[in-house]
């Protein structure tokens, strides 16, 4: 298969980037999208140029490192698929493929297709945890959790932190990312203790990072590689309002 690749190249955060076009021949339909880029990079390096920088690690759709905006879709045209799981057989021979980095004020471009997602980290630092010290845990089965809730908590916890939700949102909002964690903990007894405080702090941090606001278009759910439901956003909103209404003043 032959392709024309239009790839965003940007030297660093300070410089302005631009698109560069690369024709690529003899791509095997068996290649994954990232292997196709490896193949391109090999040719670029052998020609004496700098290869396209992009993030990747596990290459099996679980680490959340990779994330490219391919032909107008985060992680490309397939649903429930990360960029590394996407294969070239999903494209038409001769197609032009436009590859861009995630675009968001809270995800500044570092180089080429690599963006800085540390804003996601800071949201987690603000409250994405249950305060349980090592060694303090009670016996696991002393606190039964219904299967329904446990399964739901798992669905929320499946987030890989890739940032596709932000990239897919017309407002570049991080609601689905924050909601997944908040909902996971808000649903289970262990997390309920500090649920109000958690939602308060995480939402505050999310707003401070410069993400947009949710207007319920649900693009995030559509392009989430793990299919995380926007129902969790509703749950987060509920938690948020109840935290505002019910929070007691600290003495």
């Amino acid at each position: 298969m032959d392709f024309t690749l239009k790839i965003w190249r940007q030297k660093n955060a300070q410089t302005k980037g631009s698109f560069k076009t690369y024709p690529l021949k003899d791509v095997s339909p068996e290649m994954s999208f990232l292997e196709m880029l490896d193949y391109l990079n090999k040719q670029i390096i052998e020609q004496g140029d700098e290869p396209v920088t992009f993030e990747h690690d596990c290459r099996e759709g679980i680490c959340g490192s990779c994330g490219l905006y391919i032909n107008g879709r985060p992680h490309g045209p397939m649903r429930n698929t990360t960029t590394c799981e996407l294969h070239m057989r999903e494209f038409k021979d001769g197609e032009t493929i436009v590859i861009e980095p995630w675009r968001s004020r809270a995800f500044p471009v570092i180089k080429d297709l690599v963006v800085d997602r540390s804003s996601f980290e800071r949201i987690m630092h603000a409250g994405g945890f249950i305060s349980a010290n090592t060694g303090t845990a009670p016996e696991s089965n002393s606190n039964p959790i219904s299967k329904l809730i446990a399964d739901k908590a798992f669905d929320a916890a499946a987030c890989i932190g890739c940032g596709a939700c932000v990239a897919a949102c017309q407002n570049s909002s991080a609601m689905l990312y924050a909601a997944a964690k908040i909902a996971q903990y808000a649903m289970i007894p262990q997390g309920k203790v500090e649920a109000k405080e958690r939602v308060d702090k995480m939402v505050k941090q999310m707003d401070a990072e410069g993400f947009g606001f949710c207007s319920n278009t649900y693009g995030c759910e559509f392009d989430c590689p793990k299919g995380i439901s926007v129902d969790f956003i509703a749950l987060m909103n509920r938690e948020f309002f109840s935290s505002k209404v019910c929070k007691q003043k600290q003495a």
Binding site: G72, V98, S104, R105, A168, N171, S172, G212, G219, F222
Partner: peptide, 15 residues
């Protein structure tokens, strides 16, 4: 303002 640099290829995400 949350997306100061716009996408070249507009969002094709189905909404």
């Amino acid at each position: 303002m949350a997306r100061p640099v716009k996408y070249h290829k507009s969002l094709q995400t189905e909404t």
